Amino acid sequence: MGKSLQVVEALSPGQNLEAYVRSVSAIPVLSVEEERELAERLYYNNDLEAARRLVMSHMRFVVHVAKSYSGYGLAQADLIQEGNVGLMKAVKRFDPNVGVRLVSFAVHWIKAEMHEYILRNWRIVKVATTKAQRKMFFNLRSKKKSLGWLTNDEVKAVAEDLGVDQAVVREMEGRMSSSDMAYDAPVGDDDERAYQSPAYFLEDHSNDPARQVEDENWENDSNTRLATAMSQLDERSQDILAQRWLTEEKSTLHELAAQYQVSAERIRQLEKNAMKKIKVAMLEA
C-alpha cells in the first residue's frame, strides 16, 4: 500500500511543485547494472515492482524535460504529469536487449506526451493538427530569437532549414502570434469595452427576410428537381428509394429483398444505380 501511494504521489505533482521536485530528486539514480536487471525482470517476468523502480528513478528526468517547455505559459505541474504518462509508456515498451539506456528511449515518449498537451491547451483553437504542422510549430518556437515577427531573412533561413516553403513558415508564425478571444464579453465589462467581443459584431442572418425567401425557394426547387428525377425511374427503383429514404420507418435491404424475392446485394445495386440516376437528373434539370 505504501509503495502504491508513493507512485501516485510521484506521478501527481499537485500544488506544491517545489516539494515534488525535491522528492523525485532524492530518489537514487540506477546504475547500468541495476537498470538492466530491473528491465529484464519487467520484460521477461512482468515484474510490477521492477516497473515501479524504473519509473520512480527517472522522475527527475521528466522534471528536467518539462523545464525546457516553460515558455508556453502552461503549468509546470501539468507538463510533468503528462511527461510521467509518457515515461510509463516508455517503461512498458522498453526492451533491455536493444542495448540503450532507458533515458535515451524514454525521452521521445516523454516529449510526445508533452507536445500533445501543449497543442491541446496552448490555444482554444488548435494551431497545429497535422504531423507536419506539429513539427513546424515546435521547430519555429525553438528558432525564433525574439517575441517579434521574423524578418524576411529569418523566414528564409527557417524555411530552408526545415525544408518547407516560406509561406508555410509565415502561416504558422501568424497562428502562433494570434490570441484567443471569448465570444461573449467578460462579466463586468462596461458598454465601451463590451462591444469589442465577437458577440456584438457578428451578424445574425436567421431572421433576414431575403435569406428566408431564398432558402424557401431553394428548398422548393430542390423538391421539384427530386420529384422530376424520381418520375424518370422505373416503379421498382422508385419504391426501393422511397422505402429506404423517404419514409419514417425505413426498410432494410433484407426486408426489400424478401419483398422482391431477390438477394440483398441485388437491392443494394438497384439502390446505388437509382441514386446515380437521381443525381444526374437533378443536375440536368
Rank of each mutant, 00 (worst) to 15 (best):
P96H: 08
P96K: 11
V98C: 14
R101D: 00
R101T: 03
L102G: 13
A106S: 08
H108V: 15
W109L: 12
K111V: 11
A112T: 13
A112Q: 11
M114C: 05
E116K: 01
Y117M: 11
I118G: 02
L119H: 10
L119V: 15
L119G: 15
W122R: 10
R123H: 07
K126F: 12
K126W: 14
V127T: 15
T129S: 07
T130V: 11
A132R: 03
A132D: 09
Q133V: 05
M136G: 07
F137P: 09
F138K: 00
F138E: 01
R141V: 12
S142T: 12
K143G: 03
K145C: 01
W149I: 11
W149Q: 10
L150C: 09
T151C: 00
E154F: 04
K156G: 00
E160V: 04
G163S: 06
V164T: 05
V164D: 11
D165S: 07
Q166A: 10
A167Y: 04
V168E: 14
V169A: 04
R170G: 02
E171M: 09
E171H: 01
E173T: 14
G174H: 10
R175N: 06
R175H: 06
S178M: 14
S178Q: 13
S179Q: 04
D180I: 03
A182N: 15
A182K: 13
Y183E: 02
G188F: 06
G188Y: 01
R193V: 06
R193G: 04
A194I: 02
A194G: 04
S197Y: 00
F201R: 03
H205M: 01
S206V: 10
P209A: 07
Q212K: 12
Q212A: 10
V213T: 13
D215N: 12
E216P: 02
E216M: 07
N217E: 09
E219T: 02
N220V: 12
D221S: 14
S222A: 11
R225F: 13
L226D: 08
A227S: 12
A229C: 08
